[in-house]
Design a protein around this nucleic acid. Structure first.
Length: 537
RNA sequence: CGGGGAGUGGCGCAGCUUGGUAGCGCGCCGCGUUCGGGACGCGGAGGCCGGAGGUUCAAAUCCUCUCUCCCCGACCA
């Protein structure tokens, strides 16, 4: 059935496999498939090994995203590019967020922004440039960010009298402004958020997950008491948890960071950690910091309290970035591409009209118009009317782009007054009479959102295992087996050793703790907490 | 910042060992036939071969220098 030849390119060391396949029909089918063992750059557009029968191959004739199990990182890059979420920029480490990816981000922004405002926070905007001297006032802060800070030293034709730092985060410019605005306890609290981009020079960029410039929101609050700041930090973490689980259908583990993993200059750092697909690595998906009065002291945010005492204010900061877009891709995606949660999907339902002859086209088009009129106001809808693509091509395309529901409308459907409705997540098809379409779609979108969350929750549960020995834990880590729960004595040395030996870090100390955390998985002393060890992006 | 690899139409690559003025697949444009799971035929457009210098009658190909990107390691949302 298939004749296979193997050729190794001298130039690149790449092995090519020529598979000549006898097809069902008379058309000869020659497929060049490539075994990627070279590290040559570039990925999109190549063809690859497709095991199976002739039928499989004709079905997946042009398959050019890597297989998830085969090479998950490559799969991620391919999907992001092919689904038109993002593209490479001419500047190192920077990415273009394309309209489809940006529409997704906008939907996420809207949902999160609403939640943030509901807690009494207002939006504002602070400049991206920070005078270097201001940035350097906080020692831990400058030390923490020094390797990745970009400085501007020239403007126009002249050297700047003082270099400007391009914000890697905005504490250093927001806190001095708070110092100016706060005189009395009556001026507190200040609750401000800003949507902006920040710049951190990165060595190993990955679209959405780690780029030189990235989009996020950063909230900065200022309080009269440590209790209030602590409460706010915890409150915003809960906002993130709710947002990520409800809108993105991604289950997370909320908890506290160890000292080593804390934000530079923070009193306490809280995090929500999610488990990605493929390698089951962790992704820090949102963080909230109780900064104590540290930044208040450094930046002179001083006020007269109601007891007549002068005091330094207590701050929090909290951020969630567009790396959560990457989380959606990695948590929900499958071998066919993206799978977007209905609540944030730019297109919730796509209509693919099908016809053979011009006469059919008119009939189908009328019917499609009727369907659009029924659905338009309640569903984010798009009709793919391109006539240079076949329906089959469109099915694959919209699956790749992760649209939750697809409506197929052909002449047969028009005749029966129904449509074929297909779920992206399960690929199940059903025929639905147009009269019931609106109702069915509304129900399915909710169902899909729930099912996606449940599936991710199931995997998180299955892939989180309590370990009691280092060997067991390292075994899991090297097998990409997911999260390992383990006792930890609280000693930074033990944490460091694990990182050096396995690349895994303490992702967080979960809020949900067992009655007895047992013994430290490293040194065997009595454990203070049960923590999650995992590799992270 | 250490180790490895690659730069040739939009994308993926071949050509280089053995110099002779660039080719394939996909994509793109036009026309026609198609269209219920990634269609096909015919006809087109598109490249000073990353850059600079050198050798030569002649350089994508040989030599020197340089830039960029990618992959693997140490740091990070």
């Amino acid at each position: 059935m298939a004749v296979v030849h193997s050729i190794v390119s001298r130039a690149t060391g790449t092995r090519y496999v020529l598979a000549i396949i006898a097809p069902r029909a008379s058309l000869p089918c020659l497929k060049i498939v490539q075994d990627r063992r070279s590290n040559a750059g570039g990925s999109v557009g190549r063809t690859r090994v497709v095991p199976g029968t002739t039928e499989d191959i004709s079905r997946r004739f042009v398959e050019d995203i890597a297989d998830q199990d085969d090479d998950f990182d490559r799969w991620y890059v391919d999907v992001v590019k092919r689904a038109e979420l993002a593209d490479d920029a001419p500047v190192r480490g920077c990415k273009i967020i394309r309209p489809y990816g940006y529409a997704l981000w906008e939907n996420m922004q809207a949902a999160l922004d609403t939640r943030i405002k509901a807690t009494g926070v207002q939006n504002a905007y602070f400049p991206m440039f920070i005078p270097e001297s201001m940035f350097q006032r906080e020692a831990d802060h400058i030390e923490g960010f020094a390797p990745e800070v970009v400085r501007v030293t020239r403007a126009g034709e002249s050297e700047l009298e003082e270099p400007l730092v391009v914000r890697p985060t905005s504490e250093a410019i927001i806190c001095p402004m708070y110092a100016r605005w706060v005189q009395s306890y009556r001026d507190l609290p200040i609750l401000i958020n800003q949507w902006c981009s920040v710049v951190r020079w990165e060595d190993r960029p990955r679209a959405f997950l780690r780029t030189t410039e990235f989009l996020w929101q950063e909230g900065h609050t200022c309080h009269a008491t440590p209790e209030e700041a602590e409460e706010r930090a915890r409150q915003m973490l809960e906002v993130y948890r709710d947002f990520i689980e409800t809108e993105l259908a991604i289950p997370v583990v909320p908890g506290e960071k160890s000292d080593a993993e804390k934000f530079a200059g923070a009193h306490r750092t809280y995090t929500v950690e999610a488990m990605m697909g493929g390698k089951n690595w962790a992704l820090q998906s949102g963080t909230s910091h109780d900064l104590g009065d540290h930044f208040g002291r450094v930046f002179d945010i001083e006020f007269l309290d109601r007891d007549g005492e002068r005091k330094f204010a207590f701050n929090t900061s909290w951020g969630l970035s567009h790396r959560t877009v990457g989380a959606i891709v990695m948590v929900h995606g499958d071998t066919n591409g993206l799978k977007l949660p209905p609540r944030v999907a730019p297109i919730q339902t796509v209509i693919v009209p099908i016809w053979r002859k011009e006469a059919e086209r008119d009939v189908v088009e009328d019917f499609v118009g009727e369907i659009e009129a029924r659905l338009r106001d309640n569903v984010r809808l798009f009709t793919d009317r391109r006539d240079d693509k076949t329906p089959g091509w469109k099915f694959s395309e919209w699956e790749l782009k992760g649209v939750p529901l697809r409506i197929e409308v052909g002449p047969r459907d028009v005749q029966n007054g129904q449509v074929v409705l297909v779920r992206r997540d399960t690929r199940e098809k059903q025929s639905v009479p147009v009269g019931q379409l609106q109702e069915t779609i509304n129900g399915l979108l909710v169902q899909i959102q729930n099912d996606m969350f449940q599936a991710a929750q199931q995997r998180l549960t299955d892939m989180t295992v309590k370990v009691s020995t280092l060997d067991e834990m390292y075994e899991r880590i090297s097998n990409n087996a997911g999260f390992s729960n383990a006792g930890w004595c609280g000693n930074a040395e033990c944490e460091k050793r694990v990182k050096a030996e396995s690349h895994a870090t303490i992702r967080c100390i979960p809020f949900a703790q067992p009655d007895d955390p047992g013994k430290c998985v490293v040194c065997g002393d009595k454990a203070q907490h049960e923590v999650i060890f995992a590799r992270a992006y």
